[in-house]
Every structure is written in structure tokens, then in C-alpha cells.
């Protein structure tokens, strides 16, 4: 079972994608709901709102333990902001699991949002459709952080140990290949 962090944001679309793949998903709003999850998706949404709610309901230690135990996490858009060590534009706190710097709203406001194809050679994924919605971008990554996807020269997807982070939304398309690959490579790999 895959948990989808549902305190705010685009959790419904991830759950729908998991359903299409025949994988059970669960909305996670409380720490105890993490217990039997094989992996966790942090969806897009507003990272500021999520941070407030993580604090207000004291969820940080449970999330930290989940990651420290080596269980896989996928952060998309706001989720990628949450997992990055340093956040700029503006500076804000984060969960800080991935040695990387990420810039919020890096491409502008909603009128600048765009769709573009992405490919992920490390996971043998040919071009798939991706939505960049008020998207962030990685401006710097640590030496041990693996780059998974790029948009031109810009880094749009990274992996560090059991945490994967992408700045875009594969879950808002009809395709399921990205989620399938994450499940195969990071969650149910043998």
C-alpha cells in the first residue's frame, strides 16, 4: 500500500494514478496512517500550507522516521520543495531530506505554467508528458544526489537514497509510466 499525504494539495490525482496501476493507495493525514505504508507520495499543492499543517499537527517526527527507516518517498512539485534541504524564493523551512537547493515559483505565475515532455534514462523511461504548474526548479544539488530528469540544462528530477523528487506533475496526465517506474525501482524493487 502506498500512502498519499493528503493534508492539502493534489493527492486525489496521485490516488487515481495508483488505482489505474492496481496499487492500493491511502490518504494520509495522521501519523498513525503511515504505519503500514510501503511508500509515501508528497503531492503538489502549497508548500507553505503543508508546512503549517505539518507543524500544527506535529507530523514532522513521524515523517522523518519514515524516511530514516529507508522507506521510499516521492515528492512532486510542492512535495519536492518539502523534501529539499534548502528552499529559496522566498527562503522557507523544509523537511530537508535531499541535499539540494530548490527555487519556488521559478518560472513565474500560472500564466507561465507549461507542459513539456520529460524522459528518465536512469529508469529507462522514454518521453512522457509532464505539467509544470507554478513549478519550482533545482538550482543546486549535492554530489551524492543523482539527477533523474532535466529540462534543457535545468534539473527537474533528483534522487537521494530513498527519496525521489520531481518538480512537475506526471499524475495530472492519463499516463501512468512514471509512477510504474517509481514503484518498480524504488518501492517494490527486488
Amino acid at each position: 500500500m502506498i500512502g498519499v499525504f493528503a493534508i492539502q494539495g493534489g493527492f486525489a490525482a496521485h490516488l487515481k494514478t495508483l488505482e489505474k496501476l492496481g496499487v492500493t493507495g491511502r490518504e494520509v493525514r495522521r501519523a498513525d496512517q503511515l504505519a503500514d505504508c510501503d511508500g509515501l507520495i508528497l503531492p503538489g499543492g502549497e508548500s507553505t500550507t503543508m508546512l503549517k499543517l505539518i507543524k500544527a499537527f506535529d507530523l514532522k517526527s513521524a515523517l522523518d522516521q519514515f524516511v530514516a527507516a529507508g522507506r521510499p518517498v516521492l515528492g512532486t512539485c510542492a512535495g519536492a520543495i518539502l523534501v529539499s534541504e534548502r528552499v529559496i524564493h522566498p527562503e522557507q523551512e523544509s523537511l530537508g531530506w535531499v541535499p539540494a537547493t530548490i527555487e519556488r515559483n521559478a518560472y513565474g505565475s500560472q500564466v507561465d505554467s507549461f507542459t513539456e515532455n520529460q524522459s528518465c534514462p536512469a529508469w529507462s523511461l522514454d518521453e512522457y508528458h509532464a505539467l509544470f504548474i507554478r513549478a519550482p526548479r533545482f538550482t543546486q544539488v549535492g554530489p551524492e544526489t543523482q539527477v533523474l530528469t532535466r529540462l534543457g540544462e535545468q534539473i527537474t528530477g533528483v534522487q537521494y537514497r530513498n527519496v525521489t523528487a520531481i518538480t512537475y506533475h506526471p499524475e495530472l496526465t492519463d499516463e501512468t509510466r512514471f509512477h510504474r517506474a517509481w514503484l518498480d525501482h524504488c518501492v517494490y524493487s527486488t
Binding site: E46, A78, Q110, R134
Partner: peptide
Amino acid sequence: ELKTGLAEMLKGG
């Protein structure tokens, strides 16, 4: 899809 995509991100808020 970009337009409804932003609306998706506002859910639960």
C-alpha cells in the same frame, strides 16, 4: 489541463 491542474493543487485548502 494546466488550468484544472492548478485547481487540483488547491484541493483540501
